[in-house]
């Protein structure tokens, strides 16, 4: 009797909290939408694809920020994914037990470093390094033919932001991939071994194919982090609202422009433009995260089937 009452109470409270989250979520969208009504009315959908951003002329388009966000995040993913998956494979499949725990801990510690510290490191260490050592390698070779790798490099820019972001999302991708890989049943590894697979063949045949959608999910969660990251990127990307032509060009991201310009936004339209960028950012991150969850969920369902 008592237990049943407690059960029911708990259920009701849980429902209330669940509903609360949903309501908050809708409220946020509504509020952002309301705040950006000025630009939505003035530009409609063309706000997204307009690449002109000059507050002095009251001209607002989000395209440079969308491009900057997408490219810096994809660059980060391109760098972080192989490294993170390598770390995850090493930790689950190769490292002896006494190395596993401290290294996992260290990787997760990377995630705990405040992003401003990454930003400082990016400015004072990485940016000069990119300018003096990494950029010349590309600009003097590939850069002479492919504009994507052409110089000059000012240090700050897309590539520097991509590298900083890559380091920041590596712990995320590595630790989720590690979890996914450790859910691969041993029977799958044994199946490959028993057919005469070497360790590497076993990893590629059994482990990676089994875990692939989960690893993809981890990558997308990492991408989501990169898309939303603000502080460190703002410090190293160069903050220039132009469409970048080379990976060494300065650029701007959606999160950075909001952080940088919100305090100086004087006109109604300016504020509204920034809020609409916030709304777009909100949708992009939700979209990316939903896809990631679905992928991870599909792999865990796969695990049950095999049981």
């Amino acid at each position: 009797m008592n237990i049943r009452f407690g059960d029911r109470l708990f259920k009701i409270v849980a429902y209330i909290f669940g509903a609360l989250i949903f309501i908050l979520f809708l409220l946020m969208i509504a509020k952002l939408y309301q705040g950006s009504s000025a630009t939505i009315n003035q530009y409609g959908l063309s706000f997204i694809f307009n690449s002109e951003w000059s507050p002095y002329n009251d001209e607002f388009g989000a395209w440079p920020f969308i491009i900057g966000t997408v490219i810096s995040s994809l660059l980060a993913l391109l760098i972080a994914a192989p490294v993170s998956i390598g770390i995850a494979i090493y930790l689950v499949e190769i490292a002896p037990r006494w190395i596993r725990t401290p290294v996992s801990f260290l990787v997760e510690l990377l995630a705990a470093i405040p992003s401003i510290v990454y930003g400082l490191w990016g400015i004072f260490v990485l940016a000069p390094f990119v300018r003096n050592h990494i950029a010349p390698i590309f600009t003097e070779t590939l850069g002479t033919k492919i504009p994507l790798f052409a110089g000059p490099s000012y240090g700050v820019g897309l590539l520097t932001a991509g590298i900083v972001l890559a380091i920041m999302i590596t712990p995320t991708i590595a630790s989720i991939s590690r979890e996914v890989i450790s859910t691969v049943p041993n029977s799958q590894r044994e199946a490959a071994y028993a057919l005469g697979a070497t360790k590497w063949e076993m990893i590629s045949t059994s482990v990676l194919t089994y875990a692939r959608s989960g690893i993809l999910g981890a990558m997308i969660i990492g991408l989501g982090r990169a898309i939303g990251e603000t502080m460190a990127v703002t410090m190293v990307i160069g903050n220039s609202p132009e469409i970048p032509k080379s990976i060494f060009d300065p650029a701007y991201t959606m999160a950075s422009v909001i952080a940088n310009e919100f305090t100086e936004a004087t006109s109604n339209l300016y504020v509204s433009a920034l809020i609409e960028i916030g709304l777009l950012l909100f949708f992009v991150t939700i979209f990316v995260n939903v896809i990631a969850r679905l992928l991870v969920w599909s792999v865990s369902r796969g695990t049950q089937e095999v049981k």
């Binding site: 799958q188 199946a191 005469g196 070497t198």
Partner: peptide, 21 residues
């Protein structure tokens, strides 16, 4: 050991086909 496992096959207690294949 890899060549040994190639010559001596093994079937396990629980069927373990590769689920993505």
């Amino acid at each position: 050991p890899v060549t040994i496992r190639y010559r001596i096959g093994m079937v396990f207690q629980k069927p373990n086909p590769f689920p993505t294949m």
